[in-house]
Simulated scan of single mutants.
Amino acid sequence: MAVATAVVAYDDAELLDIACVTTTLATATRFLTGEHTAHSDAPPVTTSDGAGYDIRLLAVGGRPVTARPGLRLEAHGALEHDTGPVDTLIVVGGYGHLRAAHDDVLVAHVRRLARRARRVASVCTGASVLAAAGLLDGRRATTHWAFADSLAHDHPAVTVDPDPIFIRDGRIATSAGVTSALDLTLSFVDEDHGPDLARRVARALVTYLQRPGTQAQMSMHVAAPAPAHDVVRDVVDHVVQHLDGDLSTAALAERAGVSERHLGRLFRTHLGRSPAEHVRRTRTEAAAALLATTDLPLARVAGRCGFGSSETLRQAFLDTYGRTPSEHRRAFRVPQAVGGGR
């Protein structure tokens, strides 16, 4: 029997939030029903249930929704008239999330469907709707990093963690910005049908084999723009280019021609963390990239990135990502990198 999946949308929802969920599940369904393998050389998928996912896009009144960037999507039905059953309920995000969170009809029926759903999830700022429905009270949750503070302020009963790309707290999951919905939805496919199907879907979508939820939202590759302050920008650039060098606060302050105390104030003002915290995070993210793209031993990775030992690298990974370097390598391994980087 197909897994009934209700995707809740509203005006000014983000189109990618919707598509990342629906396309991932539709691709999994094509594999499960044999449609995808019929047009390729891939072997058939063997699972306990080959029925796939029955995806329904729901909106208040069953009206079309205008999603960013201005495309109109037809809903499959009215949220308030959908009686289920719903296995998985997913609320998408977008710039209309606050209006959606104050829509009494939408919130009430999300709450109603959630009561009997096996899984409930939000994409990006869709967490605001789940929070308004009381579904995140007493739970740990995430959202797009740019909206985390406002979610925490508006819903003090929710423990908001802006760092992970998605969080599972019991049967409720929340994800970060936009394409993190791919990772969350792939984790659902893995949970329902196993890692082999999840890997095939990821390859079909030409995306990373699913990133664990503990992957940080703000990495070296999607970091905020360079700091506007000349001193901070110069030090940040120096750190990236000299990971295995002396990056103590004293050495960085001397290079910048300022006192350690002043450098600390500048970093906290412009980056929100101390120089030492920034150095450790940058080294950890550089090590994460090396682990995914080379076969260097852990000790070599640690040395290249300025960690004194493999154990120091391991502790930095546990503190930053909640997993060990070896676990990261297994999750993010890029096949083309095997044999390179020595």
Rank of each mutant, 00 (worst) to 15 (best):
V3K: 10
A6H: 01
A13P: 00
L15R: 00
T22K: 01
T29M: 11
A38C: 07
A38G: 11
S40D: 05
P44L: 14
P44D: 13
G52T: 03
D54M: 04
D54A: 14
P64W: 03
V65N: 01
A67F: 02
G70P: 05
H76V: 08
G77Y: 05
G77H: 06
A78N: 12
G84N: 07
D87T: 09
L98Q: 07
D104A: 12
V105N: 06
V107K: 06
A108G: 11
R111Q: 15
R112P: 01
V123P: 03
G126E: 08
A132R: 14
A133L: 10
G134F: 04
L135R: 09
T142G: 05
F147S: 15
S150F: 07
T159G: 02
P164A: 08
L182P: 00
F188G: 04
L197F: 04
A198I: 00
M220G: 15
A223D: 15
P227F: 01
R233I: 02
R233Q: 10
D234N: 14
V236K: 01
D237H: 07
H242I: 00
A253C: 10
G264R: 15
T269S: 13
R283S: 12
A288G: 10
T294Y: 06
D295E: 14
L298E: 05
T312P: 02
F317V: 04
D319P: 02
D319V: 01
T324V: 07
E327I: 00
A331G: 04
P335A: 01
G340C: 10
G341A: 11
R342W: 11
